[in-house]
Design a protein around this nucleic acid. Structure first.
Lengths: 99, 99
DNA sequence: ATATTATTTCGATAATTCTAAAAATATAGT
DNA sequence: ACTATATTTTTAGAATTATCGAAATAATAT
């Protein structure tokens, strides 16, 4: 149904929003144990419902995973999903350029 | 007016569309001399007007530059703009992960 | 003038963005 | 078990923005 180009484009599109990019950054900094939605909310000052929508979009494209521990939902950045994107860009959009 | 996070997010958003990602890939492969709009059109089979819209969006965020040579407009992928994005992601979204 | 190359206009449709308010989920206290 | 509380999602609705492409326009060259 979706080819790989679409998967990559979808992830790029989700990262392409200031709030979502900030959310992803925050979650990466939190490490493997993740961060409760409420903590993200405190950190970024985004209203609950808005934040929830953004997070669920990132979950849909595999950038974030959620696991519940009693009442709190932990959000965990899926580093591999971003890595797929980085590798794609490096392989397909960086032909023959050295640093 | 725009901070750096916004610049990066805007570029990510533009890359986050299957057609535009394909356009950027095609232009990168074409190298420094770039590719006429018409050639991109032949390669990707996107209608003129649609293609023009997509290209102008990428120009707006600095991912592509255009220079005219007589009747043909050459589109040149701005590699540095993508590189900014890659560096941002590596520095801000890849904390402590090695390969 | 005519042809070539590409953009802009325009209109229709669809998707995104935002958030207050209601609902769902899960625990703790009594 | 029942109720209150905590945490997060879902619903719903309005405003904005994106997407697409045919048709009109612009820019250049012959």
């Amino acid at each position: 149904m979706f080819n790989y180009d679409e998967t990559i484009a979808n992830r790029l599109a989700e990262l392409g929003h200031v709030h979502r990019l900030a959310i992803y950054r925050t979650l990466i900094q939190a490490g493997d144990q993740g961060l409760p939605v409420g903590e993200v909310q405190k950190a970024l000052q985004i209203p609950n419902s808005t934040l929830s929508h953004h997070i669920s979009r990132m979950v849909n494209v595999g950038l974030v995973k959620q696991t519940r521990k009693s009442r709190t939902l932990y959000c965990i950045a899926q580093y591999r999903a971003l890595n797929d994107v980085l590798l794609y860009l490096q392989e397909n959009c960086c032909k023959g350029i050295d640093y």
